[in-house]
Structures are given as C-alpha cells and as structure tokens.
Write a protein that binds this DNA or RNA. Structure first.
Length: 308
DNA sequence: AAGACGAAAGTGGTTGA
DNA sequence: TCAACAACTTTCGTCTT
C-alpha cells in the first residue's frame, strides 16, 4: 500500500499508481491519469560552458512515438546546401531526396492513420498516456518490419494496445479491446501473438491481482472485500492453484468468495459478466478455492449469521 | 422465480511427435 | 502438420433458497 492516501476523482478508487519517470499518477481501477506533468524527479543541472550545456540540456521537443515521425523528422538536406555539390554528387542528392520522400510518405501516411485510431481506442478505454506511448512504439516497429502487410491496420493497433497494457500491468481483457476497437476478439489475439513473437516482445503472463481492483470497483465492492479477494488470491497462488488457469477466471472466483465472506454477496452471473468469463468457470475455480484453502468454515459461518 | 450446481458436448489454442 | 490434451464455453436439467 502506498503511504499517501488519495482517491481517484473519477471512480473513487484507491489504487493509484505513481510513475515517477513520466510524472503521472494513474488510477488502476479506471485508468484515469490523475496528475500529469508532476515534478521532474531528475536532478537539476546548471551549465557553465557550452560543452556542459550540450550534455545536460533537457529541453527541446520531447521525443514521442505518438507523433508519426516521433517529433524528430530528418530530411536529406535542404536546397541551399546543393551549391556545394556538382555533377554526379548533385544527381545523387536528388535521387536520395526522391527516395526518402517516397518511403517516408508511404509509411507516414499509414502511421498517421494508425495513430489516430490508436488514440481513439486508447481514450475509449481510458488508458494512461504511458500505455498509449508504448502501443505507438510497438506499432511503429511493426510497420517498419512490414508486419502489417496482410492484416488490417486496426487489428494491429488493437494488438499493440493489448500488448502495451499487459506490459504496464494494467491489463484489459480481449473482450474490452474488442469492444473498443470493433475488431473480432480472435483477430486481436492472433495479431497480438504474431507481433509479440516477431518483435520479440517478452510479456509475462498477466497477474490476476491486476484485474481485481478494476473488477471490484465495477462490482461496487468495498475496499475490505477487495483486499480480502487479494489475500485469497495470494493464498491460491501459494497453493499453485493458479498456474495454467485463465487469470480472469481466478480473479473473478476470488472476488466472488470474498464477497460471500464479507456479506456483500454478488451473484455468480454478476461477477461473471464483469470479468468476462462464464459462471461455470467461476464455479470451478470457486470449488477449488474452498477445498484447498479451507475457506469452507468462513463461508458457512457467514451464511449462518445471515439466518440468525 | 432466481440463483446455484453439475454433466455433457463443443470450441480454440498449445504441445509434442 | 496432425492428433492429443487442457482450459474454457455453451447448453440444459435439477436442486436450493
């Protein structure tokens, strides 16, 4: 738990994530970026001569992948330079310019469109800026490697976003991505696997805990129930009940059990809908949890209390 | 009547020959 | 490349509250 206590103005969630490098405070529940451009945590320098100034200068346009040329376009020379050249050299110069123009316009046109789409989907899902940047970076790499060929631009954008979310530990389900982008779930999964394989992006299997906060707030569960769910989840992980299982199913079952124990019962259907799994899956995980973790007493106790 | 439970058959993805 | 396999889903009937 963080030492500062602050609530998200959007959803009231308390799971805030501080990203020092980017100076952002992110709500893990709804993805809202609460504070941008906070103080710069880097050391402040003063420069006394040109050499130091060059090294230490931190100003200038920031490099960003959400601009199609990363904010740093490079051209093959300008016209005023050609007086230095002549004959062959001059021809070469024009040839280079022509080629650069052709290549860059093709890629740039694609990137411009794609990044617009990326921003649209990203803001629909209320993803933090850092994830958007990451997705843009992934997409740019994919374009450069020609991985978009044969695939729709939109599906690659969705795949890049999905990957970026996972890397930043604010995972969204494929269903959510699908709803936001209008691309078929399977298609996103396919392109996601393809581009991560081709680009050698290593992604850890997503941790069910990362889903708890968002699901809990969607179910309007109290903070106590939420942390109870996390406890249960951790026990489950220690008992090796989680490997090989779908992380959303486990998160959903933990929440369901926690809601029973804390007398804040939600139906299996409610939890299932939010988590994007079926009741059956929740039941299966739920049974395993009860059996292996000896939680039966706790649950039945609360049931008795209800009767009393 | 709604929710919980469980069986059975089907789907898509991974793995290992 | 194909078949076996595990996880998950869909569907449906039954039991419980």
């Amino acid at each position: 738990m963080p030492t500062y206590v602050k609530k998200c103005p959007e959803c009231g969630g308390i799971n805030l994530l501080l990203n020092k490098e980017r100076g952002e405070m992110i709500c893990k529940d709804c993805g809202l970026v609460i504070e941008e451009k906070m103080i710069d945590f880097n050391q402040e320098w003063s420069s006394h001569d040109h050499e130091q100034a060059d090294k230490r200068r931190r100003t200038g346009a920031p490099m960003t992948y959400t601009k199609f040329d990363r904010g740093m376009g490079t051209d093959v020379g300008q016209k005023q330079d050609i007086y230095k050249l002549s004959g062959k050299e001059r021809n070469k110069f024009f040839r280079l310019r022509k080629w650069q123009h052709r290549i860059s316009t093709a890629i740039e046109r694609n990137l411009k469109l794609a990044l617009a789409e990326l921003k649209r989907v990203s803001s629909y899902l209320k993803l933090p800026k850092s994830v958007e940047e990451e997705a843009a970076r992934i997409y740019t790499l994919a374009v450069q490697r020609g991985l978009v060929r044969g695939r729709s631009m939109e599906s690659v954008v969705a795949g890049a976003l999905y990957a970026a979310c996972r890397r930043h530990e604010v995972p969204r389900t494929l269903d959510e991505l699908s709803e936001a982008s209008g691309i078929d779930k399977k298609e996103i999964g396919r392109t996601y696997r393809f581009i991560t394989r081709e680009l050698q992006i290593r992604i850890l299997p997503s941790n069910p805990v990362d889903y708890i906060a968002r699901f809990a707030s969607a179910l309007k569960l109290t903070a106590e129930t939420q942390s109870r769910a996390v406890e249960i989840l951790e026990q489950a992980q220690n008992s090796e009940l989680t490997s090989g299982r779908g992380p959303t199913g486990i998160a959903a079952a933990s929440l369901y059990v926690a809601s029973l124990i804390n007398n804040e019962k939600r139906t299996q259907r409610e939890v299932a809908d939010i988590a994007g799994v079926t009741e059956v899956t929740i039941r299966n995980r739920y049974k395993e949890l009860l059996r292996k973790l000896n939680l039966m007493e706790k649950v039945s106790k609360t049931k008795k209390k209800k009767k009393d």
